[in-house]
């Protein structure tokens, strides 16, 4: 069984976010970058299935500038077999990403496509259901557990206040919650070995997709600030203050 896993390069969510002076966007200059944690969980799950013998080949793909090579090297070091970089100046919008991934899926014919449930920068959570729609495949999104038996996936999904289990025939698209798998730490030999694997570059035009943006970013702003906190001496004082705020 062959799996396609998409990995996005994103700013590290633990580093403080800076906005451009003119508020036209996020200032990425000097930001530490990493593989999107949700994609990392998706890939880890696939690698574990490969180690268990249920997946035979993992193809990784990233869409963006040349720096995404680094993200793909990380994916190769984790256990992907080969990789594609789809060249794009900016990270395209989810619908364009879904179209690019559909085109790649038509070339590569995977049995399974595993994505992160969202990218930790844009937080859209759109690509997996969009891709499933374009391919006409079943979807199992926000998956925290996936079991594979006789060409059927048992997908446990995180839903509001609980979980849902779906059965999906292959081929299918799934998207990973962080709980799907705990990513491994990479060691030097794996990183060195990854250098020997191939990364093939594709242009969107070769895939027949024009990833032009449809939406226009007008600006970004910091979230509204809270008033400085009131330091409270003890529980009794706290309750008195909260009662004034209307605590029942």
């Amino acid at each position: 069984m062959k799996a396609l896993v998409a990995v996005k390069r994103v700013p590290d969510g633990n580093a403080p976010l800076r906005l451009k002076m003119d508020c036209s966007g996020v200032d990425l200059a000097g930001m530490p970058m990493r593989i999107n944690p949700f994609d990392e969980a998706a890939l880890e799950w696939a690698v574990q299935r490969k180690e268990a013998g249920t997946i035979s080949e993992i193809v990784a793909v990233s869409i963006g500038g040349n720096a995404c090579q680094e993200t793909l090297r990380h994916a190769l070091a984790m256990g992907a077999d080969r990789a594609f970089l789809i060249a794009a100046e900016h990270a395209p919008e989810p619908l364009a990403v879904a179209k690019l991934l559909r085109a790649l899926a038509e070339r590569e014919q995977p049995d399974l496509i595993v994505l992160g449930k969202q990218a930790s920068d844009d937080d859209n959570a759109q690509t997996a259901p969009m891709l499933a729609a374009l391919l006409g495949w079943p979807q199992g999104v926000f998956a925290s557990n996936v079991a594979l038996e006789n060409n059927t996936l048992q997908v446990t999904r995180e839903i509001e206040g609980g979980q849902e289990v779906l059965a999906l025939p292959l081929p299918a698209v799934i998207s990973a919650d962080l709980r799907l798998a705990n990513p491994r730490y990479l060691k030097l030999p794996q990183l060195l070995q990854a250098k020997k694997k191939t990364i093939e570059t594709l242009n969107p035009s070769e895939l027949g997709v024009a990833p032009a943006p449809r939406l226009e970013l007008l600006g970004v702003a910091p979230p509204p600030a809270r008033k400085p906190a009131v330091k409270v001496a003890d529980a009794r004082e706290l309750v008195a203050l909260l009662r004034q705020e209307g605590l029942p």
Partner: peptide
């Protein structure tokens, strides 16, 4: 395309 199995 897919089948619901259970909800908890």
């Amino acid at each position: 395309r897919s089948a619901w199995v259970s909800t908890t």
